[in-house]
Nucleic acid binder design. Structure first.
Lengths: 132, 132
DNA sequence: TTATTAATTGCAACATTGTTGCGTTTGATT
DNA sequence: AATCAAACGCAACAATGTTGCAATTAATAA
């Protein structure tokens, strides 16, 4: 495989994702970096980080794509099959690392990966709705 | 609510989706209609069909968006919370109407909708892999 | 430290997907 | 047949992602 380098831009992208509690879109990352590097460069860095298994990509119900740092802390083999929550009000996406769905598949399907996204109201927005 | 009309284009779009065993993208529908109507018209028809609850929209892991006819046959109240299977080889998306995941959520989240997509190999592609 | 070289970057151009405004056409109703 | 709002086509635009290429730079060896 190709050697991969640590560049200022890559470090900065990773730092932004590390600091964020929620998954971020390409545009959000670009804004936070404040023209440190080109739009295209960010796409390429995100691709590299995904290949390195440092971040993962989340496709939301509404078609938006977000990125989040992987949590490798507890497993030796990293599995992406956790759930994501997408808030309908604030549009934040959070990883629900502890939520793992169980399900029964029909025969003759080979499942390699699952994507489980729930949407509704996150705790923050749920609380601010109490006054309704 | 606004009155909705039956037009040639709407009938044709619905027919294409009815005949298809798998979910189709906007582009795929457009090609099948063979310039019966404008690209934009198809987007508007799809929006209307979703509002009428005749079809549903599926966002795939890779960011592609597909549409499929709803199966209203057995329930009085139609629920979209079934799973979808996305084949990594032929890229077809099929509705797994019988697969409903069970899961345990953390407190303080209000779940309104769920999206459960599994990817891997569909029965067709799994069989053609036997010779490997 | 300097030279080497392949990975990375910036820029421009392009592709795809989806949206909006507006004048025209058309389906359903009277 | 007349009415009129829904639906349409077209042009223009916006957002998101990709590609080719020349210039720059990080990591390695000399």
């Amino acid at each position: 495989m190709k050697a991969t380098r640590n560049t200022a831009a890559k470090t900065a992208v990773l730092e932004v994702l590390e600091k964020s509690k929620t998954a971020l879109s390409h545009t959000e990352i670009h804004k936070q970096l404040n023209d440190l590097c080109d739009r295209v460069t960010i796409y390429r860095i995100l691709d590299r980080l995904i290949n390195e298994d440092t971040i993962h990509k989340i496709s939301n119900l509404d078609g938006t794509v977000k990125y989040a740092k992987c949590n490798h802390s507890h497993q030796r083999v990293h599995i992406h099959n956790h759930a994501h929550f997408s808030c309908e009000k604030c549009h934040e996406i959070t990883c629900l690392e502890t939520v793992k769905p169980s399900y029964i598949m029909p025969h003759n399907y080979k499942v390699n990966e699952i994507n489980f996204t729930l949407s509704g109201l996150c705790p923050k927005c749920l609380n601010s709705n109490i006054n309704f």
